[in-house]
Design a protein around this nucleic acid. Sequence first.
DNA 1: TTGAAAGCGCTAACAT
DNA 2: ATGTTAGCGCTTTCAA
Lengths: 334, 334
Amino acid sequence: MADQPPTIYDVARVAGVAASTVSRAFARPGLVSSATAERIRQVAAELGYRANPLARALPNGRTSMIALAISDITNPFYNEIIRGAQVAATEARYTILLADTQESGVVEREALDRAMASVEGIVLATTRMSDSAIRVMAKQRPVIVLNRAVSDVPSVVTDNPRGVRRAAEHLAELGHRRITYAAGPEASWADGIRWRSLREAAMELELQVRRIGPHAPTVAGGAEAAAAFVRNPTTAVIAYNDRVAIGLIRALNAEGFAVPGDVSVVGFDNIFAADLVTPPLTTVAAPLHAMGWTAVHNLLALIGGASSRATEAVSLPSHLVVRASTARRSRKRR
Amino acid sequence: MADQPPTIYDVARVAGVAASTVSRAFARPGLVSSATAERIRQVAAELGYRANPLARALPNGRTSMIALAISDITNPFYNEIIRGAQVAATEARYTILLADTQESGVVEREALDRAMASVEGIVLATTRMSDSAIRVMAKQRPVIVLNRAVSDVPSVVTDNPRGVRRAAEHLAELGHRRITYAAGPEASWADGIRWRSLREAAMELELQVRRIGPHAPTVAGGAEAAAAFVRNPTTAVIAYNDRVAIGLIRALNAEGFAVPGDVSVVGFDNIFAADLVTPPLTTVAAPLHAMGWTAVHNLLALIGGASSRATEAVSLPSHLVVRASTARRSRKRR
DNA sequence: TTGAAAGCGCTAACAT
DNA sequence: ATGTTAGCGCTTTCAA
């Protein structure tokens, strides 16, 4: 009474051919006479045959699955990235295995260990792993790191230097001369490069910059940053990301600072909420969808045997979205 | 030179036992003398042996994977749900396979077809499928539907009637007598029950209600709703979800309506942005994390053989979060 | 162009 | 308590 799904043998029997022929008909149609191929297709359709992906994967490891590791899926930053990844995966008929690592290195290790064997490649969208741990992992399976550069491992990043530069220019044009950088987590690769790029840009643009932090990359972290900021305010701040910027603005308002009246704020990422808050946030928009898409696309290329000379980071352009959280420096000194 | 991962045979050989014994040592330790079990564990550790989950799954179908189908992963509503699901899955050492169906019935069908065979059960967090299609699917694999009730299929929903009731009471207490419901997508189960519940609550509370819509469940949908609303305004509106509420408020502001001065607005879901917009949104909060967790937890129970007499919907409590988008009805007539 | 047969790594009877 | 032996459903030589 068990209504098991039909196997390749069922198809073979009904079509009057050997199982291997059925297999070929699907995998390498060229090796089968078009007549039999057609018949097999017919029978398969009638029987509702669908190759069992697990069984298929066993002999040759082609599971048609890739893992997407994200340390905090709660972060709205990832939504569009996941969508992009999903689109690229679907195009290639791959399935995404989600590894939300819940901000814990241990959970991450376990999740990836578990997933490793079932998966043809991995996109590390965010990870607690050290560079060397990542390199080790990359030895075993194709890996693409997102939003971080790890030497010898292909990556996809946004053009942070350019984004930061645009933000600084924008602020400079508005008359600001001193800029505070509200840093994100210490371990963040993006944080490091943003701060470095800002210093370089400041040099050229003859701005003064200083850094406060580190802070958690959250609204709460932004509030923390505000506390540090008010002790020695400037007329402009660039925040590690939009959530920090939002938290900062709210806390600043509570302290009696007007944004952008007294201080201009720019964030990073252009998350969904950036356009919804008051004032709408000026922010360096990352090409979220493209990042997810590109990461998976390149991963699949790697899996397909592309030389990983794509070892250099692929850099995707970001752009400044000017909204209302930045304005001309007000005359009154601050 | 291939550095293949060790197999069960490697462990068996080194430990000087049969492969089946190794298998037992891991799966049913009780059936192995503690001495050999210990030795096997040793050897396995030394060799860095990890059972190949695919190979393990083939004989008995226990893939330790479940699918999570979401039609629009772009919707921030799902972030916490996914996290909850992930936590429950991780607890049971299951892995989540993500099926973002990109709002397309076709993509969904394909994605699920592909995933079906690799997965022990499915959580339908959002789906385009008809009730009957879902029932068919539930015949083949354990299924839990989230946020929708399908007869004969176990589900997890939030207590919409109670949430709506609380929203209506809140508005009534503030002196509002006429409420507009800005509907979501026609196909949405939640939309249906919200509107029905609102009518019932209105009856008891002696309120007048009317409905506008359907609208897309997005900020743009909210703007649409505003256009319809202004043609015949009321002093209060309950929106299908937070995104619609936010879009509505913005469009209303653009039309010269103050919120909550002229019109009070309440949303649903309490998404991340709800607390960030101006005014902060009064909303019926869904227990997002718990929903994801419960869905997966119950699914795993089903997989574990629990009688699906859990066929009735599990209803999780929601609660009203009062923020600043609702206020006492202003005297001036509208 | 097709068939036969030997696995992929693991589990689960069935023996011993 | 442990070993033997078939498979799970598919792919892939190797022959024919």
